[in-house]
């Protein structure tokens, strides 16, 4: 699924990079909708993928590690985009985005062929929730590893 999202989003970015000027403002907005559907949703899928492979007691450590890596990427991203725009002008911004998304799609296809996804019974249950302020959230006190120690 991540590979499909990245491929669609990558192609949308390439369309903006190559045909951006001839599409005009409205055309770019419409293709941006497609780009957003892929590029802005796969972070959650990557986190879910990691959590499916994580023992229950290690979830906070894995989440903090993933956020740290995402933050590192967020520092590098604007720098790389700036270099791409300086080198290739307006084409460079979505050109870089498209290339990286297509590269990510290929990496995901390679990973799927290298290691199968966990069985359904090994995966964590999930349900959609709205963004909630941390103060109003009740933390789940269960931790099987900690219970085994005590």
């Amino acid at each position: 699924m991540i590979a499909v999202l990245c491929a669609i989003s990558g192609m949308a970015a390439m369309v903006i990079a190559i045909f951006g000027r001839s599409l005009g403002e409205v055309g770019v907005m419409m293709v941006l909708v497609v780009w957003g559907a892929g590029a802005l949703t796969f972070f959650g899928l990557c986190v879910a993928h990691a959590i499916d492979r994580t023992p229950k007691g290690k979830i906070p450590q894995v989440m903090s590690g993933l956020l740290f890596i995402w933050a590192g990427g967020s520092i590098v991203g604007p720098l790389l985009s700036g270099i791409a725009m300086r080198g290739a002008g307006a084409t460079g911004l979505f050109g870089l985005s498209g290339l990286l998304l297509i590269l990510l799609a290929l990496i995901m296809v390679w990973r799927v062929s290298a290691r199968a996804a966990p069985e359904e019974h090994q995966q964590e249950d999930w349900s959609p929730i709205l963004p909630t302020p941390l103060a109003s959230v009740e933390l789940d006190p269960r931790n099987p590893d900690r219970e085994a120690e005590t």
């Binding site: 972070f43 990557c46 993928h49 990427g73 590098v76 991203g77 990286l100 995901m108």
Partner: peptide, 10 residues
């Protein structure tokens, strides 16, 4: 994936 999500989106 999360690293490239940071790079691409931000």
């Amino acid at each position: 994936g999360v690293m490239l999500a940071g790079v691409i989106n931000t």
